[in-house]
């Protein structure tokens, strides 16, 4: 059975709006959207762009780390449940990859909790079905094959989100002892993202597909990714860096230029995406 078709089928347009605008996401998700909005409040951090260097802003740094911890809680629990679910083929590359990623995400949780100390936060309660849209652990009888496809798709979305979210918080950590460790986590998330994307491509038999490589092409979410994950990729099509349009300045097209730079994501956007999977 065609795994892409599966993914298209479970992408319910009435649940998962095409647009990523906050209003539409909240509108279509109803009560879930309200929870996402609440979740976004403590993390309503602006990106650093254009802001003056604010090394002494401890609140911004704490907020950045709390957002990071929330995302790590999400990932850590997701991979633990994935490995327990029996959905991943035993002894497969996928299982080994998930084991390694799981180890790192759990370590990130412990590391960030320790770093935050008294400012640490408890794990939210997660719902990886996002209100019934997904069944990645096959709890609700969707079947191993569909669940596997969803496990891979959600992992890709979480990892690509993680990369962008950490990048978006770097400015808030400037001048603090947490910047370098955050960068060290950020690049691990990028390694994960690359591998999960390539693993998905392999499972789908799309190793040579331009939109299913280890790097992000334009703002393409990639084949088989649910429409709801488009918010993870919006803005990745940027080809202007440091006010230089690199399509004009180099011999390469927008595809290659966009792949060469990952874009940051605001704390608000990251919170909204995480909020889709947060019950309370």
């Amino acid at each position: 059975m065609n795994i892409i078709k599966f993914l298209d089928e479970f992408t319910s347009e009435n649940l998962l709006a095409k647009t990523s605008s906050r209003r539409d996401v909240f509108g279509t998700f109803g009560s879930l959207g309200k929870k996402a909005a609440l979740a976004a409040i403590p993390f309503g951090l602006a990106t650093s762009s254009g802001k003056a260097y604010a090394a002494q802003d401890q609140n911004a740094a704490i907020g950045a780390l709390q957002l990071a911890l929330t995302l790590e809680y999400l990932e850590a629990e997701f991979y633990l449940k994935a490995l327990e679910s029996g959905v991943l083929p035993g002894g497969s590359r996928a299982e080994a990859v998930y084991q390694q990623i799981s180890k790192h995400e759990s370590a990130h949780v412990a590391f960030l909790k320790s770093g935050l100390g008294d400012n640490s936060i408890e794990s939210p309660e997660f719902d990886f079905t996002a209100g019934g849209a997904f069944d990645p652990f096959n709890y609700n009888g969707t079947g191993q094959e569909v669940a596997y496809a969803q496990l891979l798709a959600l992992a890709q979305a979480f990892e690509d989100t993680g990369v962008r979210a950490y990048k978006g918080q770097a400015g808030n950590l400037m001048g603090t002892q947490f910047l370098t460790p955050a960068l060290q986590i950020h690049s691990v998330e990028a390694r994960h993202a690359s591998e999960v994307r390539r693993l998905r491509a392999d499972v789908m038999g799309l190793n040579l597909e331009q939109n299913a490589l280890g790097w992000i092409t334009l703002d393409n979410k990639g084949p088989g990714m649910p429409e709801a994950t488009q918010a993870v990729y919006n803005g990745e099509e940027n080809v202007t860096q440091g006010e230089v349009n690199l399509v004009d300045a180099t011999a390469f097209d927008a595809v290659a230029v966009s792949q060469s730079f990952d874009e940051p994501m605001s704390g608000e956007t990251a919170s909204t995406i995480a909020g889709l999977f947060i019950v309370s």
Partner: peptide, 14 residues
């Protein structure tokens, strides 16, 4: 810093 971050994650993907 942001630009370095945009590049390092691509290096990590590589």
């Amino acid at each position: 810093l942001v630009i370095a971050g945009k590049i390092v994650s691509v290096e990590a993907r590589h």
